[in-house]
Design a protein around this nucleic acid. Sequence first.
DNA 1: AGATGGCTTATTGTATACAAACCCTCGTCG
DNA 2: CGACGAGGGTTTGTATACAATAAGCCATCT
Lengths: 224, 224
Amino acid sequence: MSRASDRAYQQIRNMILSGALAPGTQIKEEQLADSCGVSRTPIRDALRRLEAEMFIRRSDTQRSFVADWSLDDVDDNFTLRGLLEGHAAKRAAIRISWDQIEHLRTHNRAILKAVSASPPDVPSFLDNNRGFHAIVMAAANSDRLTAMLNQVIEQPVVIRTALHYDQDNLQQSHREHEDLIAAFVRRDGDWAQAIMAGHIRRAFHNYADAHLSGREQANTDQAA
Amino acid sequence: MSRASDRAYQQIRNMILSGALAPGTQIKEEQLADSCGVSRTPIRDALRRLEAEMFIRRSDTQRSFVADWSLDDVDDNFTLRGLLEGHAAKRAAIRISWDQIEHLRTHNRAILKAVSASPPDVPSFLDNNRGFHAIVMAAANSDRLTAMLNQVIEQPVVIRTALHYDQDNLQQSHREHEDLIAAFVRRDGDWAQAIMAGHIRRAFHNYADAHLSGREQANTDQAA
DNA sequence: AGATGGCTTATTGTATACAAACCCTCGTCG
DNA sequence: CGACGAGGGTTTGTATACAATAAGCCATCT
């Protein structure tokens, strides 16, 4: 991760996530090169990656713009994630080792602790949640599936989702993880798939609710 | 497509597909630059794209190698394709326009003609088949789904598949397309999904059979 | 007024030179 | 005899200069 292009990738990605680069704004290679303190070459590398991950889209004449995500896009994204990650859970159910299951339990214990605190420890939740899902993907044991999932998850939108979780949502996540472990223990792929699909879908609606009330808030602000 | 990096992309891709670059061989940027008649800069661009599409994999120390595909990898690939393209068919069923359905019919008429000839007109089949599936993807109307599907289809393996189709297989493809159109006309998403999933899965087994008999053939050759 | 064409500037694409990282070989030491 | 490490050649990463292309602008013509 010490290569300049990797650092540039992270920096630009963060700028987009934080809103420093607003959706729709044109991206100029030289300007980014300046702000990242490197030449255009690694910037171009980073932009290609971000483009592949749909953080950035390119016009027909090769100009780059920060992608903007409509609620429909986000819906699509979560749907795809549910499809793929549900499939991963199904595969994992018949492949996962007892050792991996033990790791899942460890992560979910940490999640329980994080969501039981008041206020909830969201960073710890996010971290262990990521770890939990990573184990499921590893157990699914399909490089391509993992690669595609990595493209779909951790999009701007997904990261913000957890920030909108209230304590009930967080605790529900913990319970769904417990169910998933139960499905794995019983080697029940269909159950695992169903739980995972619902888990992801609930996350979408949580995001959508926050998104809508956020927009209302914004409209109110504007009106005031 | 006239940019040097695009031409390089196509050339390298073709070299991999044709076997001129054998699976497992290391790829050196400068060597490709020479053989494509451009500098390393556009070559690097092309390699990044091919890497994202898993034609090329990179070692932990940034060396590039031509990916080699085990039958399990191919199975994974087709499974994912069935999942995604099945989902696309389901979406398409409730979104596709009558105009698009008419285009599907046109393509499938051309396919019928191609597969009825003796010998079958495989290039025409491939072309119209591509067109047919492209319309389904367009009707599904999800940019991200389309992007992911494009990553999964047209891999080395998929291209070779059709070459192994015998006339029965080709005609069966035509019939499955007809079923798909029927499902679309009735706006039956579940039916469309089931047909598409089966369509893709059959293609996999066709490939696998050819692959296995091909290996037997190779073993025989070796023994002789 | 609106459209059109060429000029200017802005932005991206490519080539090249050099720097950094890596890999392999070979010699040395335990 | 094997482990280890230094050195040189190889390969990838980055910076920079220049070329090509697109966008914006204004003058001109209708």
